[in-house]
Structures are given as C-alpha cells and as structure tokens.
Design a protein around this nucleic acid. Structure first.
Length: 213
DNA sequence: ATCCCGAGGG
DNA sequence: CCCTCTGGAT
C-alpha cells in the first residue's frame, strides 16, 4: 500500500471511529479559543478547561485581559503550568489585539503568528475551529506521534510534518483530521502504552504491537 | 521518570 | 540546533 493509499484508508477508518470528534477546549468566542489554546501548551485540555471558566468570567474582552493585574492573571492560570510565560504572552497578545486589531482576533496566519504566545499550531487551531478556515493542519504532540507511527511522515518537526500531511489529506478535512488523531491519541494510541490490541487502525499501522514506537 | 492540543530565546 | 518555562497526572 502506497503512502497516499494508507492515508486515505486511515482517514476513512478515523471518520468511522470518531464521527463526533471536535475541539475539546471549552470556548464560546474566538478570543476564548485563542486564550485557551495558548494555555494548552504542555498541558491537558481537561486542565485548561478547569481554569478558563473563572478566567473568562473575569475577562470578557481583550482589553479586560490587559487591565487585569499580572499577579491576578498568573494566579488564575497557575495550575495550567508555565504560568509566568503564559500570563506574559496573554497580556502582550491581548494588548496587540486592542492596538492593531480593534480588540478582535485576526483571521490570517501571519497576523495570528505575529501575536505573543501564538505559534503555527495555535494559529491553526483558531483558524480551523473558530473561523472554519482550513489554512493548515494542527500538528501537536498527538498528531506528530500518530502520523509517525502510522507511517504518514518520517519528519520530526511539526512544520515538516504539516507539509507532508497537507499533501495527504483533502483540504476540506484538515481541521477534522487533527481532531480525529487527537481523540485517537488520547483514547487508544497513547504515548506510553498504545492499545494496539483494540486499535481500529491496527491493520493499517506499520507500528502495530511495536510498543514505544 | 515521562507526558500533556508549544512557544520564545540563545 | 538546543534550552527553558511549569504544574498535574500516570
């Protein structure tokens, strides 16, 4: 089976297995998703969803985040980890939203990645989920691990992996594709002990039963 | 000890 | 390229 053939088969199997896959970060506005995604760095989204309700009650607009004293912001997001860096980025990011974008979240890759704390992964999450724009493919730790295990790429950096995936996945499914892999990465193809025995992709996976890779 | 929907800086 | 930032779960 060629790589494009395997990709198509993997996509079909994932679509069948996770028909209800969606973004599991809790948000109602583009700004909330942007902040939640900045907070999600090296942190489970379950943990992010534990801190954002109080945070979003305190801050409704980008200007609210800028006005909130740094110590209070740090305290509100403390349990999400990297809290000093994240607080600093959120503040600078929201200041830029107010100054350059009228308090709104911009809808282009360049404008988003110019914001503090926003890299390509976070920008792709916002573009795909808040705005429904398939500009790129989200490559987080799950997408990286699973696409490598599945033999869809041999690259080792998120940007190079994204370049491979863009060629293998129909553009209309870029956002869904990441959700499928993230759901599968959490539920079955975990980092330490992948459950190959019950895996829906087992027949398609060159790494099946080779635990750890 | 390793991992979690990373990003910035050197 | 590497290192650092941080807490919580397993």
């Amino acid at each position: 089976m060629t790589r494009p053939e395997r990709a198509a088969a993997v996509i079909a199997a994932l679509a069948r297995t996770y028909p209800h896959a969606h973004c599991e970060l809790a948000y109602t506005t583009p700004l909330q998703l942007l902040i939640a995604t900045i907070l999600s760095a090296q942190c489970t989204d379950k943990r992010v969803n534990l801190v954002t309700p109080a945070l979003f009650r305190t801050c409704r607009t980008a200007a609210d985040f800028v006005a909130l004293p740094a110590e209070q912001l740090e305290e509100l997001i403390q349990s999400a980890g990297f809290f000093r860096a994240k607080a600093k980025n959120i503040r600078a990011c929201c200041a830029a939203l107010v100054e350059r974008h009228g308090g709104e979240v911009p809808r282009t890759m360049d404008a988003l990645t110019a914001l503090a704390g926003v890299g390509r992964k976070t920008a792709n999450v916002v573009l795909g989920n808040a705005f429904g724009l398939n500009v790129g493919v989200v490559v987080d730790t799950h997408v990286q691990r699973l696409t490598r295990r599945l033999g869809l790429t041999k690259q080792t950096t998120p940007e190079k992996i994204e370049r491979d995936l863009i060629k293998l996945v129909p553009r209309a499914q870029w956002t869904l594709f990441s959700h499928w892999l993230i759901w599968h990465g959490r539920r079955r193809c975990t980092a330490r002990n992948p459950d190959c025995a019950t895996c829906e992709l087992r027949a398609l996976c060159p790494s099946a039963d080779k635990t750890g890779k």
